[in-house]
Each structure stands twice: as C-alpha cells, then as structure tokens.
Computed example of a mutant assay.
Amino acid sequence: MLFALVQVTWAASGATVPWSPHVAYAPTVQLLLAALAVLAAAACLATTRTLARPGRVTMAAALILTVPVFVMGMASLPAYFVTLASFSGVDSVTGLAHDLLSAVGAALLIVVAISYRRRLRGRCPRCGQDHSGGFDGPLAHPVPSLASKRTRVTVYLLMCGLLPWAGVKTIWTLGGEAIGVTAHGWREMNAGESELARALASVGIDVTVLAAMAAIFLLLGLLYPWGQAFPRWTLILSGRRVPRLLPLLPAWLSSVGLSVYGVFLLIYAPLSATGVVPKLKPSGAFTTSSGITWMVAFGGLAFAGLGFGLIAAARSYSARTLPICAGAATRVPAH
C-alpha cells in the first residue's frame, strides 16, 4: 500500500522516475503500478483466510502477475550500488526510491507466497517441515557446510565471465590500449567521476572492477562455511552465526538486475555486429564500431556471469542454512 501511495503521488505531482537512463515512467504506468500494488496487498490479505478453490486460484494468479512486476522494478539496483560505492552521487533519488520499494515489495510477496504454499500442503508455514505443535517456538539452525561440488564448479565457471571485461578496464587504468581505446581516452571519458574513483584509477584499479570484487567476495561467502559463521579474522564476531539475510539480501537483490542486463547485452552485441539491429556507433573513448561492440559483449559476459553465479550460490546457501522449528522431530524436505 505504501508503494501504491508513492506511485500515485509521483503521478499526480509529475515527478520524473527513470525506468532507464533515457526513459522515464509515464503517469499512466505509475497508476497501473499502483493498481497492481493494491491487487498484491489484497492477495496477501487473502492468504490469511480459508479460501475455496476459485479463491485460491484467483489469489495465485494475482501473485503470479505482480511478483515479476516488482522484481523487474528493482533491476537497476546494482547500478545505483556502484555509483554510491564510488561516491559519484545518485543519478535519481526517485529512481533509487522506486527500486528500493520494488525490492521490498518483491521480497515480501515471495515470502507470503512461500508461506501460503506450505500451509496449503499441510506443512509448517515458517520452516516448511512436518511437525506437531505451533510455529512460534525457537528455531534450530544447521551447522556450517560447504556448497556441493556441482554448485561450486558452476559458480567458478560463471565468474570467469568477468575476465575479459575486467581485463580491458585494468589495461586502460594501467596506461595500455585495448579494443581501440587508449588509456588517455578512457581517462577523458571518465573525467567527471569522483575523487575516490580517480584516485583508484591512478593506481590501476577501476571502481567498477572493485565492485565486482566485492560481488566475488559475496559469492565465496555463499559457497563456504565462513559465510555461515564469522571467521577468526572478524575478531569479536568470530564464531557467531552469520544472520541468514545478511548475505542473501544483497545476493538476491543484485542478481536479478545483473542477470537481466547481462542477457540483454549478450543478445544485443551479436545482433548489432551482424546488422540485424543498427550497428553500435563509436562514442566517448571508443574509436571503432567493433571496439564498442566487443565491450558490450564483455559487459554481458561479466554481468550475466555475476548475476547467475549469485543466483546459484544464493540458492545453495538458502537451502543449506534453512532453519527448522526446534520442535520438529524429523526434517522432511519440502516438495
């Protein structure tokens, strides 16, 4: 309901809410989003009641319709994270607020849908297991564990998608030339960046590559036991259980935008190179059409690799750290 109120306020006041760097939400679209949010709220309230089959079907359809809308609405969160982390400011306060509200809405709707599905199957709505008694008692948390070998190999392979993109950026910051872009041209194109970004570039570190390294750190935490219990180098936190949502929230929130954007770039680059869509024109530091096309492809590999890697790692972490109600006699995997 808060999301709906904000959308109506923006539509009535004519506020600019960017959907992409060059496209803003139209007032009619904002009103449609508000209506969908009200529909989602009604579906959430309906889950607290005992419904006949037509009611359950209607509620499920409402959730299936609204969840993807909220998920797509938070697709730009990784871009805002990079600008904030580099102290470059926020391109649009309303855009950031829209993405954050969409992220909260998506998370809450998914939690409601999972809980209701468990109740329909006769399982505990909190832990998803079969057990007697209520679901308001203490939780039992599993011991730290390592992700399966298949998951680790999958994530490592997806992480390799970063290498071409990070490689050319590192070459430019170190003073070299790659895919038709010189170090001087790259510095001129990024002259408007923050002092921190320029200081990092002077020692060969691109701020976006640094952000990717933070994502890799998150990936490793999702795969290994030290992401479930604070390691010794965390000093006073050493040995304590890591709150489950601490790594999962940034992983899920950033993975969607990275995956969607990466797949789009991977599709667009070859289509542009073959002339199916208009060829990319050189701009900024790029002097050739082929150079900028290669960079788009490298970006697609990097973003899609990180996005899908985070999805795979977060899915494994979520399953390995799932707590169960302490009163559950046995842990029966949910269907």
Rank of each mutant, 00 (worst) to 15 (best):
T154Y: 08
A147E: 05
L157H: 12
S145V: 10
L158E: 04
V153K: 10
K169T: 01
S148T: 13
S145I: 03
G167W: 08
K149N: 13
C160D: 02
E177R: 08
G161V: 08
E177C: 01
K169R: 13
I171A: 14
T151G: 00
G176Q: 04
L146C: 12
K149E: 13
V181Y: 07
K149C: 10
L174W: 14
K149Q: 15
G175R: 07
L162E: 09
T151M: 01
K149Y: 11
K149L: 14
M159V: 12
V155G: 03
R150K: 13
E177I: 02
S148M: 00
R150D: 08
T151N: 00
I179E: 02
I171K: 04
W172I: 00
L174C: 14
L174K: 12
L158H: 07
V155Q: 06
T170Q: 09
A166N: 12
L163T: 08
W165R: 07
W165K: 02
L146A: 08
G161W: 02
K149W: 11
T154E: 06
V153A: 15
L163R: 02
V168N: 00
G176I: 07
I171Q: 09
L146Q: 15
P144A: 11
A178M: 12
A178C: 05
I171G: 02
L163M: 12
A178S: 04
V168A: 01
K149D: 13
W165N: 12
S148D: 09
T154I: 14
L163S: 04
